[in-house]
Design a protein around this nucleic acid. Structure first.
Lengths: 223, 223
DNA sequence: ACCTGAACACCGTTCAAGT
DNA sequence: ACCTGAACACCGTTCAAGT
């Protein structure tokens, strides 16, 4: 294909071509995040990874929150589609919840980045749109569909935040937790100490989603 | 009462008496948080509020995370007690969830502070202990009681994080959200745009807790 | 048009020295 | 024992100047 393409012709570039672009910057930022964690992801560290001066970044992002928002938005890529394949809405909601958790888990501190921003990008809105679509297709009112999706999404964020929190923090507080449970101050917790210690996050997550889905099943629905 | 008190005698102080203490420092930090938000709460800002040099703070807190952890722990004061008064476990669980949300809402960025720390202090552990106690008293197994409390607590954190997120961020993204919903890209979301816009957080919260409690009701219980 | 280089006004943390 | 004062190694952000 060497003839004139049917896509819009690229504007004739004036001046020197950019060494970086938003997309590459976000991808590199996510790589730094994975390698070194959110606390180490500074504008200067990202600039170094892009082999560019710090100030250059401000031609692509208004400020650091804008960078983080772009990262959060990118994380949800692939969550809105395809339409969940489950046989009923319960399975479909579960599938969407799992999708979001896995998307956040894919990056170190992913939930912390996502929770700290307020993105209105296509991945986030598309995901919410699919979620609401699944529920309205199941006969929920538009209001309940929105409420239900928000409930599940907020649980996913709360859960994954906790799940990833251990990645950064020392095991020091695990020890202090053990010491606390060894006292007689929290008898009901101590009876289940083996659970709190183990931290089977996948199990906790599935339990939570199952409870949520079961609870939503009690709501009135149209045929 | 001027005689010798029955409390342990204060150790004879050597050197000059401390100008500050942990408790006053945490209280002042929470005041700064409320007045100026988490991003403005720097060690230097807190030192200024305490009328002390920055370095002094490191005699009371190992580092900034330790400060934030102490603040998070303090926020949950009064959540573990009294035992919830509701007539059944559903009402009691709801009461505990509301208690935690209100405790986090009491301080600006409260959920963000709490979610960013990993406290094993008596308020946090005591709250979990009460939560698990309510559920085991209702006949849930110890395992389910722990799983259920964690599920509810993580929903509360996820929800309140979102609820408080608007406090700091500009209304700029509300506008961009409106623009996005005005397109035809998110038909199911757009159908419920009036809900997403309004943001009746209390309603969302009650809906989520109700769904969660209803779902937990499906689990097997002992007499 | 895009990037550099340098500056500004901050951070968290450490530590000798004072009292 | 407790605090000061000063330093160290960083931050995010801005902006004139270069090419």
């Amino acid at each position: 294909m060497t003839g004139p393409s049917n896509t819009a012709p690229a504007r004739k570039p004036r001046g020197r071509p950019p060494r970086i672009d938003q997309e590459r910057a976000v991808a590199t930022a996510l790589a730094v995040l994975d390698a070194e964690g959110l606390d180490a992801l500074t504008m200067r560290r990202l600039a170094a990874a892009l082999d560019v001066q710090v100030g250059t970044l401000y031609g692509y992002f208004a400020d650091k929150p804008a960078l983080l928002t772009a990262m959060a938005e990118r994380m949800l890529h692939g969550c809105a589609e395809p339409w969940p394949t489950g046989p009923d809405w319960q399975a479909q909601v579960t599938e969407l919840a799992r999708r979001m958790r896995l998307a956040l888990l894919r990056h170190r501190d992913g939930a912390r980045v996502y929770a700290g921003t307020r993105t209105t990008g296509p991945n986030t809105l598309g995901f919410a749109d699919t979620f609401v679509g699944v529920l309205t297709a199941a006969g929920f009112t538009a209001e309940d569909a929105v409420r239900a999706s928000f409930t599940v999404i907020r649980f996913v964020i709360g859960h994954t935040l906790e799940e990833q929190a251990g990645d950064d923090r020392l095991a020091a507080d695990v020890e202090s937790l053990h010491r606390a449970l060894a006292t007689e101050d929290y008898p009901r917790l101590t009876a289940a100490a083996h659970m709190i210690t183990s931290a089977d996050f996948e199990g906790y997550f599935e339990f939570g989603v199952r409870a949520l889905v079961a609870g939503l099943g009690e709501l009135p629905r149209n045929p």
